[in-house]
């Protein structure tokens, strides 16, 4: 069986799903969405690729080591917390500000979104790592195991 149709459609899905996940991530503060959902959506996109091709290829689409993703995400999350402390506010106290950007109209810039991006990165990293490990039954391509 040659899953040609699957593979072709999956390629298109990849971009759509990734784009949509970014959209969900950014709008999550005001509409359904957010870091968890966006991260999981990206992960589903990777799962689709893994189904159509193989897990190694799927994970190579995210060209960052999974440990780096998780670490970076946690760092961002903690960083927003520490940043608010630097301004003399309690840990993880967020600020937001409305501003006008060309093409996008009025946009709210909230430090909470940075936190959410951290969540997103962690979820993507965890999903990538787990899927790769379970699918191949061995350590990931970037791990010391290979």
């Amino acid at each position: 069986m040659n899953p040609l149709i699957l593979r072709t459609s999956v390629r298109i899905h990849l971009y759509l799903l990734t784009l949509f996940s970014f959209y969900l991530l950014i709008r999550g503060h005001n509409e359904p969405g957010g870091g968890f959902i966006a991260g999981l959506l990206t992960a589903s996109a990777m799962v689709l690729q893994a189904l159509a091709f193989d897990a190694r290829y799927a994970s190579s689409l995210v060209p960052v080591r999974e440990q780096t993703l998780i670490g970076l995400g946690l760092l961002l999350a903690v960083g927003t917390g520490v940043a608010s402390m630097l301004f003399g506010r309690p840990f993880l106290d967020h600020v937001f500000h409305h501003t006008f950007l060309p093409f996008l109209g009025e946009v709210e810039l909230a430090s909470a979104v940075v936190f959410d991006i951290g969540v997103y990165l962690v979820v993507v990293g965890v999903a990538k790592w787990t899927i790769l490990t379970v699918a191949t039954g061995r350590a990931g391509q970037s791990g010391p195991g290979s």
Partner: peptide, 15 residues
Amino acid sequence: VIGLGTTALILVLAY
């Protein structure tokens, strides 16, 4: 989301 992590962990453990 934690449930997903748990499921993955138990699966790998079982394996």
